[in-house]
């Protein structure tokens, strides 16, 4: 199962929300993070193009940024699913 830990953390988040604890995450919040991550990745790509000597270190960072983006996209799907599953008026 992809993002197993993220899924279980997300389940706990939804449980806390059901208990009236914590702040609900909206798709717009996740979109903000995705935009930040994309901007960051573009900056790292530009940096790697200019600094060949740092290529290895930067490639690790770009890989991490890619994974984070994938996790954020997955989170977006879950949050959007949760929003559409929430009854009107809730």
């Amino acid at each position: 199962m992809p993002f197993e830990k993220l899924t279980s953390k997300l389940d706990r988040h939804f449980e806390r929300l059901a208990e009236g604890k914590g702040r609900k995450i909206k798709p717009a919040d996740v979109a903000k993070i995705i935009a930040k991550l994309e901007k960051r990745k573009a900056a790292l790509m530009a940096e790697i193009a200019e600094n060949a000597d740092k290529a290895e270190r930067l490639s690790h960072k770009i890989a991490a940024a890619d994974e984070m983006l994938a996790r954020a996209q997955f989170l977006m799907e879950q949050v959007q699913g949760n929003v559409s599953a929430t009854p009107a008026g809730d």
């Binding site: 197993e4 993220l6 997300l10 609900k24 919040d29 993070i33 996790r71 954020a72």
Partner: peptide, 18 residues
């Protein structure tokens, strides 16, 4: 921001995931 902080907590990679 509480929601953004919660997203950061959720997205933080843990060893098992990584």
């Amino acid at each position: 921001d509480q929601a953004m902080a919660e997203i950061e907590r959720l997205l933080a990679m843990e060893d098992e995931d990584e």
